[in-house]
Simulated assay, not measured.
Amino acid sequence: MTRNTEGLDIRVVGGGVIGLTSAITLAEDGHRVRVLSRDAAGGTTSAVAGGLCWPYRIQPYERAVAWSVRSFQVLTALARRPEETGARMVTGTMTATTGGGRDASEGAGEGGDDGLAAWYDAVPGLRPARATELPEGSAAGWRARTPLVDMPAHLRYLEQRLTAAGGTVERCEAGSLAEAGAAADAVVNCSGLGARELAPDPDVHPVQGQLVIVENPGIQEWYVSADTGATDTTYLLPQPYGLVLGGTARENAWSREPDPAVAEAIVARVARLFPELARARVLAHKVGLRPARPEVRLTAEQLPGGVPLIHNYGHGGAGVTVSWGCADEVLRMVRTVQEGRGPVGG
């Protein structure tokens, strides 16, 4: 896209990965952007995320996969500077489809029926796993090298990149979207779970995710077994700060307090596949509330008074995976507004 020369004053509500990537894309296009966020980036749900770039618990699949492919491209480029960006390319094994319950080796790169065919085609080198590459108890899977993001580090990078582009972050809670737009040319609503009250949108609800961080005994690859709709998942993600073990996906559970029994069950599930982790030293327990919705809301309308409002929320467990693709769509919508054609739905 060609950078525009007459920017708008834009308020982005929400300082997680969706809000920051949207803000960066707009600021780097020449707009004057201010992010309004109740929490510091490190205190958002994004900071708790495991950080694997893979479409998970998100609809509609066709659009989500397109957004994911774009984010894959951006994160792959950022992985050339891992210490700065928090993104790395890491090989791993997926042993269940995230789009359905089919055998994990079916459909990879072959236009399968789980809605992720375009994603399979976009991941270089993705292939069915050989039996020797699977943990004991896993019947099938596939191997892929994908971005794995250290989210606390990545959020710091995003804030710094936004500042470098001329954007700002203001620690405050938006009382309403109309209030956010009072002195702006446009508002972008990236409030995640907060959209339940701000939009207001009763379809937004939490999917609670609990994970355990343990000392890494030397594991260098990720492993995931997580079917869409499953309450309990099994995964491990090697991060610089420790090995992330997961997890849970509990609809409409609001608690942010780790449950010791759930944590014990998570470690036990992972240890059945990787016995060396049974006695790994626990470093931390974390709980995050994924901002879920039947489908992502990426649409535009007008606030009372005519200020354009773009919604970008409801990404569930795939925020980092779709962030840059969704940010590109936000930019296209803003440009449509700027050209005088009025807000358009996504």
Rank of each mutant, 00 (worst) to 15 (best):
V74D: 09
G100V: 07
T132I: 00
A108T: 14
G92Q: 05
R57S: 13
T98D: 02
A77C: 05
R102N: 14
E84L: 14
G112F: 03
D103M: 05
Q73W: 05
T44N: 12
G99Q: 08
P82V: 03
Y61V: 11
V69E: 04
T76S: 15
G115Y: 03
A41Y: 07
P135Y: 00
T91L: 12
L116Q: 06
L116A: 11
T76M: 01
T97C: 13
E110N: 08
I58H: 06
T95N: 09
A41Q: 11
C53D: 12
V123D: 00
L126Y: 00
W119R: 00
P135T: 01
Q73F: 00
A47I: 10
W67A: 11
S46L: 06
V65G: 10
V65Q: 07
T76L: 03
E110A: 13
W67M: 12
G51W: 08
G86C: 09
G107E: 08
R102D: 15
G99S: 10
L75N: 05
Q59P: 02
P124H: 02
E110W: 00
Y120V: 06
T93I: 15
A66T: 11
R127I: 01
S46M: 11
E83W: 03
T95P: 05
L78E: 15
L126E: 10
G99L: 08
T44G: 10
P124E: 01
A66M: 08
G86L: 00
V65N: 00
A64I: 03
G109P: 08
W54T: 12
S71T: 15
W67Y: 14
G51A: 04
G51H: 06
R57I: 06
F72N: 08
S105H: 12
R102S: 14
G111E: 08
T95A: 15
G99Y: 04
A118P: 02
Y120G: 04
T44F: 08
T85V: 06
A41D: 09
A41F: 08
Y56F: 14
W119I: 03
W119E: 02
A104M: 11
G115R: 02
D114Q: 06
P82N: 05
P82T: 09
R57L: 15
Q73N: 10
E110C: 07
A41H: 13
V65S: 02
V90L: 10
L75W: 09
R88P: 06
T91K: 13
E110G: 10
G109K: 01
